[in-house]
Design a binder for these strands. Sequence first.
DNA 1: GACCCGGAAGCGCA
DNA 2: ATGCGCTTCCGGGT
Length: 470
Amino acid sequence: MKVVSLQLPSGPSMERLPLPFSPTELLWRYPLPWAPPPPSPLGDTKAQLPAGLPPEPRLWTREDVAVFLKWCEREFDLPNFDMDLFQMNGKALCLLTKTDLGERCPGAGDVLHNVLQMLVRDAALLGRVPSSPVTPTARAAPYPPSPHSHPPTPTWAVDSFHHFHSAAAAAAQPNSVTLSPAPSVDSSGSPQRGETLSYASAYAPPVPVQAASSGSNHSDSDDDAQFAPPPRSPKETPLTSPAPQNHSASQHTHYRAQHREFFPNDMPESNTNGRLLWDFLQQLLNDPTQRYTNYIAWKNRDTGVFKIVDPAGLAKLWGIQKNHLSMNYDKMSRALRYYYRVNILRKVQGERHCYQFLRNPTELKNIKNISLLRQQMSPTRVTPQSVVKTEMKEERCEDEHVEEDMPTDLSMATSEPWRKRARSDNSQPILPHDKHRISALIGDSMMMKRESEYNPEHYALNLKSEKCEQ
DNA sequence: GACCCGGAAGCGCA
DNA sequence: ATGCGCTTCCGGGT
């Protein structure tokens, strides 16, 4: 008999901590009276804008810009801006990159940039102002219709900048409008233009560490400090008010120059809006205001490695998201483990609660298509032994085809056809101990495979395999 | 004891 | 009816 736990992660902010999803889905997401839908960050920002200020920043006059900046100072507790550096209208303001903003107002550039992004994006979504190639609302092009024609998977080291430009140019095309809820625009977590965010260091979360109930959220890794910004004490500012940290814009610029980010700028719009676990995690990881870093945080964004800082708390969030209130880390981690077999995730060996995305979001969004394609092409594997053989063969061929014949969907039928058959095949029943041996064999081979994949070249190899597919 | 793993069965949804 | 993406439960290993 199951007991549904109604205990949400404790702490003052959990109930109010908005999940990064669309207001239109809040009824679905918060169907229960004890979990009222929090206002979206965008909604808050819009609602709190000074009266008389047009919602479209690009229409602002110079005076409007000044009003906006003053409002930002108050609202986000920012240091006073040097107004001389902002003698411009709204259109010019929107053209400023995050770096530009950071230089004009050190420590607040990120906040300003994000707020402007949200406002511009919202205005664009409402169709009031068409996107222009240079606006922050320049959206990624619609995802290519064919898996064979999908955009080049980001080559992490060098291509993101070019991706942005092509994506921005595509977004400027009239037909590239994507109508989706505003918050999920940042499902990618990435900004909408070339000036990418260094989210991992941009903001401290307004969520206090104790927001979740697990008590297991202590760090067990020496380098935790690298990815988890120091939590701020609970503040009276709204949760929608990101708090700047003392990271210079130059640091961000340097970071961007040296690393690709896990989220490319030309991320296609998520159509799952967090209903899928990987999407949920990525939305949290890439929340523009980093509200969830006490739950989950990038450990190395470049390689997709992240750490679940608060397993129990994160599981509760996921449970809220899916309306499975008895969700816990054990169950959620089982779902994560299903991602192993489809090469979406892997476990970072030896580090608790650390996982690594093996595919970037662009690939993930395309996985369904790849799955269908591979269902047609992949050979049938009907026995565990053949699975092992196949896996071993894959391993041998790994240098050239990292993901050859790897399943990309989560269904048992397609990824492990032998399993269903084994259940119904009376002629060759698989005894429990045999299953475990088989499991161990498969596990060993998979482990070998995974270990061999665990190197910095993995993404490059993945990309190569993707290209080979085509 | 917590974490991690993967099998098994089932559920809700599209 | 079917497949997908989990959810739930579990036994076992570390």
